[in-house]
Design a binder for these strands. Structure first.
Lengths: 159, 159
DNA sequence: CTGCATTGGTAGAATGTTCAACTATTGAAG
DNA sequence: CTTCAATAGTTGAACATTCTACCAATGCAG
């Protein structure tokens, strides 16, 4: 039995990947749609607001927001502008580095997030944590290892 | 020790979800960028061509393509038009149901896909299958269970 | 057979994301 | 101090995706 390496995925490799990809796409879709329908917030916007809420009064640098959700800087810039237009976020200059910009959650933004967060929690529990069950240690180990291999900054939670 | 249910994720729940989400976002990004840079094909387009290749001479219904990648019908319609413009795909009418439409891979499309597939395989092996290692049975079990809960059609591989 | 709800697919407008400059600032080398 | 590369962020245009409405075909109920 040789470890023959082909240039196409097949058998167990393909099955594992197929299953992971399909489940993930469906989950992200479900999350995005449920948040949009019930809380009027897209998943990317939710991730941004969530991250802003974690830093509280300190504010959050644009680049931090970008990394936290694996978004490009440009995307964050556009997203924050839209969120500012809605009145959920405020930008303030950074005093020590004049290139920098901080984002802050406004009170309406905090309210918006609070409700969205409960929706988010329900979906993740039902469609992710529940099926994962006791395997959470394995899942964490594997995904941490993936993230490391993919060059994630350590301790940089997506949300 | 009560099974206290909060409306926010915390502790192990949050850690597991964070890790999974971040790893997945980074992986999909890596896959998309590598395919785009080295094979001139976005991940969604790759998934469409791949699926078309699996049905070979029979062709593939638009709705099948949609389900296979968890895409909307509208998205598939636009995507197929673009792929047709590039000369990689052909549309033909369905003889038995005159509403229906089949997609076929052209020869240039098949060539395009072949190269892209080797890139795809490399990325998945290195950043997904490798970190997964022996845990593939657990991963498969968990993601199958997620997909079922999320209402996936059985035996409908994403790619 | 007729009427009508359902399905398969498409098209254009609105929205979001990516790409390619570009400005301003910082930090490091000489 | 000056120069220059690197960094933080923004902008507008190009492109992709979603949303909504729509057409044509189908199939089912009466």
């Amino acid at each position: 039995m040789t470890a023959f390496v082909d240039h196409k995925l097949a058998g167990q490799e393909l099955d594992t990947w197929n299953s992971y990809l399909m489940a993930t796409l469906l989950l992200l879709d479900k999350l995005d749609h449920t948040l949009s329908d019930e809380a009027g917030l897209s998943l990317p916007d939710f991730i941004v607001l969530f991250r802003l809420s974690q830093n509280g009064d300190e504010g959050t640098r644009m680049s931090e927001l970008a990394e936290a959700g694996a978004f490009s800087r440009s995307r964050i810039s556009h997203a924050i502008r839209r969120l500012e237009d809605e009145g959920w976020v405020e930008r303030r200059a950074c005093p020590t580095d004049r290139r920098g910009s901080f984002g802050y959650l406004t009170d309406p933004g905090r309210e918006k997030l609070e409700y969205a967060e409960s929706i988010h929690t329900d979906v993740i529990r039902r469609y992710f944590l529940e099926p994962v069950g006791d395997s959470h240690t394995v899942i964490k180990k594997v995904t941490d290892s993936m993230a490391t291999e993919l060059g994630a900054r350590p301790n940089d939670p997506a949300c």
